[in-house]
Nucleic acid binder design. Structure first.
Lengths: 208, 208
DNA sequence: TGTACATCAGTGAACGCGCGTTCACTGATGTAC
DNA sequence: TGTACATCAGTGAACGCGCGTTCACTGATGTAC
């Protein structure tokens, strides 16, 4: 019989438990949502004792931060791709759609990202500090479209406005409330496009 | 001594425990935020045993619903007041500002309102079904400003867009990230006004 | 007006649960000689 | 190449906690006669 050896090939040392824990957390998020995301559940999902994560993360918050950080990187990548594929004049719109779609496809992760950011000094580095961040992509695209790069405050306000609008839409897009609109417009993407059009967000980029 | 009689004047029967529980919940929300809002904490705050609430609410969710519902009513009232006080051409802007200020002043309550609404068939009656709801106020004001009331889908989309943008701003306005912008612009209200201006939300109301 | 009794709205103890975290431990790994 | 030993990365049992909910109960209230 000796099943214990036959079945479990996993060695005592894991190899990259840190990675495995973050992955396990994301699996739980997708399957059961943010409220199910406990440290113990993550350890369980990774097939490891409840104490094991403490060799890789100081506490629960640090694990959550790691998950959120990975979320921001994924968002950056999605927006980079969207921007690259769009024609210049559509780039801002494409960024907005990509943002909302990311939130739609990863609602629990999206929530964790903002929950981790709340109460922090700033949104995490991943969002704003690096030159490649999603935030900077929006700002830079506005400049590419003709916004005055020397009007710093104006540029920041415009970026903020666009970001807020996208965030609001991202959070609400899933509400059942809107099902009939999606239907009448012929699908969710059409709905998002229509709302974005009504936002008219990007009219304010100045073409001097 | 007989302190027990001297100090506690509270009778065995409370009078209106339901009311008292909702008030206690709101007090906890304001003081400690949504994560501290447990049924036991509410009972404790109301000075009552942990089982008492079950004579007034089926379970925790039902209490939360009651709190959320009261939040929507407060929001309705705040927006009604803002609309009444503004000049016609500024009414939409005033509604937006009132909305965001409500969220800023009651952040925990605001959160509970949307958490209770998520996964529901629709946002609660308080938001959309009654003719006086905040949602209807926005839509009606758009019509008053010249939107075509027969273009139903368009009108709903415009209202949705405005609502989403306000929601996004409401959720993000408190981020420390924006402190320097608020400072440079001379206060939070100025900041909100500026972002709203950049949103240009209401350019899409048609003046036929 | 007084009394019996049903109903209502509380009490407080207890249930089982999952949580975050700590602890003493042990098996595996890597390095110095 | 072999061995002693420090270090690393796991285990699993235990801690105290607060939670939502249930239960048998009891004090207060209101109603029928």
């Amino acid at each position: 019989m000796r099943e214990s050896h036959a079945v479990e090939a996993r060695p005592y040392h894991h190899g990259d438990l840190r990675r495995a824990l973050v992955d396990a957390a994301r699996r739980i998020l997708e399957a059961e949502g943010p409220t199910a995301l406990s440290l113990r559940a993550v350890a369980r999902e990774a097939g490891v004792s409840p104490a094991a994560p403490y060799h890789h993360f100081k506490d629960k918050a640090e694990l959550l931060d790691a998950v959120a950080s990975e979320g921001w990187q994924m968002l950056d990548a999605a927006m980079a791709k969207a921007k690259a594929q769009a024609e210049t004049r559509n780039k801002l719109n494409a960024l907005g759609i990509a943002y909302v779609c990311f939130a739609r496809d990863n609602p629990a992760l999206y929530r964790v990202m903002y929950d981790a950011a709340r109460d922090k000094e700033a949104l995490p580095e991943d969002m704003q500090d690096s030159e490649d961040s999603a935030y900077c992509k929006v700002r830079n695209t506005m400049v590419e479209l003709g916004a005055d790069p020397t009007a710093t405050i104006d540029l920041e306000l415009a970026t903020t406005a666009a970001w807020c609008a996208a965030h609001g839409l991202a959070e609400m897009a899933g509400f059942k409330q809107f099902d009939h609109l999606k239907e009448e417009l012929g699908g969710e993407t059409a709905f998002l496009q229509a709302v974005f059009a009504h936002l008219g967000l990007f009219l304010h980029v100045r073409h001097d």
